[in-house]
């Protein structure tokens, strides 16, 4: 609907995606992934897909982040990189 806003959010989504796969710390990667999900939610809402945006906000930014953190807390790091 407003292409400059679309482009801005899309650029931030790409930045978040690159940071998520390149960062070493798992907890930080989870947080950036949550930001990615929320930006995707904004993008869907801005493009008019409110229902998809709702699902992305609840599942992507909400529950999956919590599940990732719960999984990280149950793991240990053995290598020293």
């Amino acid at each position: 609907m407003m292409w400059p806003l679309d482009l801005l959010i899309l650029a931030l989504v790409v930045v978040c995606a690159v940071v998520t796969i390149s960062i070493r710390d798992l907890l930080a990667a989870t947080m950036v992934f949550s930001v990615y999900s929320f930006l995707m939610c904004l993008l869907w809402a801005e493009m008019g897909a409110v229902d998809v945006s709702f699902t992305e906000a609840t599942v992507g930014a909400g529950v999956s982040t919590v599940l990732f953190i719960a999984a990280i807390l149950r793991t240990t790091r053995r290598s020293k990189d």
Binding site: D51, V59, G62, V66
Partner: peptide
């Protein structure tokens, strides 16, 4: 309206 069983269920579970 936007929303539904899945989204509402996720909110209740959260």
């Amino acid at each position: 309206s936007p929303g539904g069983g899945f989204q509402g269920g996720v909110i209740l579970g959260s």
